[in-house]
Amino acid sequence: MVRIIFAIATILFGFVVNAQDLEKSLLWKISGNGLEKPSYLFGTMHAVCEINFDDNLKKALDETSQLYLEIDMDDPTLQTSMMKDMMMKDGVTLSSLMTEEEVKLVDDFLKANVNVSIKMVDKFKPFMISSMFIPKLLECPMQSIEMELVKNSKEQNEEVYGLEEISDQLAVFDKIPYKTQVEELIKTAKDNMVEGKAEFKKLMAIYDDQNIEGMLDVMKESDNKISSDFSDVLLNDRNANWIPIIERVSKEQPTFYGVGAGHLAGEKGVIKLLRKKGYTVEAVK
């Protein structure tokens, strides 16, 4: 009887430990499970006001010999490939998903904020149009952590790769109903980005606090249906696809992985998925 109680307690304790929130850290060390040298996993934010790589991050970059981002941002064909997959499928257009009043609202908003008319982007996936407003949400000169990582890799004569193709990334927005994406675009135009700016500011504060679990919580609780209702296609499915690549690549040579911080946290995040595969993934303080 004592053995049975002990076994149940062990199982329950293991579940509780596994379900605990992750530590506050953006940088994580991947080791064990047959790896000769450690690799590192870093949570990025795709648009920030300033970039400060601390000593731990610089050390991790020095100890690794190649860079993997979500996509290969050093690929010279990236822009051409991107243009092919920015359009909605089956001849769907923005204006076909809106009323006349909504078309005018969005058209005026686009002209005022990004200096384009709705006719110029009528075939674009709505989320791609929403991404044009990111510099406005920041309210500061936008900087890219990913491009800074690429710059560092070039200075060290290291190769840059992607965990997925740009076509894979943009295909995600064919899985989220275009109508839902359009509704979020209309909401942004109606309130002139007030809600978007507030949420972005909140995300940046949580990111600066290195609270990756908090970032995931904000996405889940967001009024933006794209973030809150489609975490599987935005995060979880992609995380699962990346794990075999991370395993293979890390066995070949020590690698620095830079992916959106939201991909790290949660039970289906990259950190816990790697732990379930037998790797030691620990926060670097």
Rank of each mutant, 00 (worst) to 15 (best):
I51T: 12
S228R: 13
E63M: 10
D108A: 09
K125M: 09
K277Q: 15
G262Q: 07
L203Y: 11
M219A: 12
E139Q: 14
Y207E: 03
S228N: 12
E183Y: 01
G214L: 01
L274G: 02
I212K: 06
P254G: 04
F200P: 00
I30R: 09
V92A: 12
D72F: 07
Q169S: 02
G266N: 13
I226Q: 07
V17G: 02
A171D: 09
Q66M: 09
E165N: 07
F230A: 02
F6E: 09
L97G: 00
V17Y: 15
M128E: 11
D74L: 00
K220P: 07
T80H: 06
K187S: 08
S130R: 14
V150L: 14
L149Q: 04
V103P: 05
L170T: 04
G260K: 08
F133E: 05
L27A: 03
E159N: 05
S117W: 13
L69S: 08
N157H: 15
S144K: 05
G214P: 10
F109P: 06
H46M: 04
A283Y: 12
V121K: 12
V2W: 08
P141L: 04
A261G: 07
I71G: 01
V284F: 03
I51H: 10
I30G: 01
L149E: 06
T77S: 15
I11R: 04
Y40N: 03
F133C: 01
K225Y: 05
V16I: 14
N18Q: 12
Q79A: 08
E247P: 01
E101V: 03
R275D: 08
L22F: 07
D72M: 06
T93E: 04
M120L: 13
M219P: 03
S65I: 06
G260H: 02
L26N: 06
E70W: 00
K225R: 11
I11Y: 08
A9D: 05
K268S: 03
